[in-house]
């Protein structure tokens, strides 16, 4: 019979990440609905605003982040749904590693799903809503990554919290949006600055704020996550 290896943390994180990606590639439970919803949201914005004759460029930074977060909740809310059927969450807690590995594994897989989604949904929004992309590419990508990381950090934590309530994952946006307000402000302001709306020199400051927000909430989540996981 094989021997048990060393107690660690990264082996567990990578195992969990592998499990999440393998599950998703088999079922497409999270990604497909998110992608379809992304198309729907852009279409709805198009009907609701563009056809009404509203100029979209000034409000575009807000639109893009609100829609990204709304679409994101669809997938991130299911972070722990797959662990319920056979109580695998209890199984994950029994693994010989600090339980924060569960948070980090889920956070990384959520980040991968969200990035893949944004690679499609963000260009789609520019194209279908007829807003010209004038931002420098690298800083813009940085804003997208940082804004998404903050969302995923808070979303993954509160998704774990929401699954233990009577309301379940429906509660996630209710819990998360107030906490995400600084991230929303930062991401929207940085995007506006990069698109030449408002002060064009502001974006480095907002990127700094987003980075600080991300670091803070990943750190807080690592500390408190264990308390959420107790049965």
């Amino acid at each position: 019979m094989g021997a048990a290896g060393a107690v660690g943390w990264w082996p567990q994180v990578s195992a969990l990440l592998w499990k999440e990606l393998r599950s998703e590639s088999r079922t497409h439970d999270s990604f497909t609905p998110m992608l379809v919803f992304a198309f729907t949201v852009v279409t709805v914005f198009g009907f609701g605003l563009k056809l009404a004759g509203v100029s979209l460029r000034p409000v575009f930074p807000g639109l893009i982040w609100i829609s990204t977060y709304f679409i994101g909740f669809l997938g991130i809310g299911r972070s722990f749904a797959g662990e319920k059927a056979q109580d695998t969450l209890a199984g994950l807690r029994l693994v010989p590693a600090d339980p924060s590995y569960i948070y980090v594994g889920k956070l990384l897989s959520n980040l991968l799903f969200l990035s893949a989604l944004e690679a499609v949904s963000i260009p789609l929004q520019f194209a279908l809503l007829g807003v010209e992309f004038t931002a420098p590419l690298l800083p813009f990508a940085g804003v997208v990554i940082l804004g998404t990381t903050g969302f995923a950090a808070v979303g993954t934590l509160l998704s774990g919290l929401a699954t233990h309530t009577r309301a379940g994952e429906i509660l996630l946006p209710v819990l998360a949006f107030p906490v995400l307000i600084p991230a929303i402000i930062g991401a929207v302001q940085a995007t506006a600055s990069l698109l030449g709306l408002g002060n064009a020199l502001d974006w480095p400051k907002w990127i700094g704020m987003l980075a600080a927000y991300d670091v803070l909430f990943v750190a807080v989540s690592l500390v408190v996550f264990d308390f959420i996981m107790e049965s």
Partner: peptide, 22 residues
């Protein structure tokens, strides 16, 4: 403690890795 969407091999592989089995 099994994932229904994964195969038998995948389940065992995942849990063995999670327990640090080489």
């Amino acid at each position: 403690f099994l994932y229904p969407q994964l195969t038998g091999w995948e389940n065992l592989y995942f849990w063995a890795r999670a327990y640090g089995v080489r």
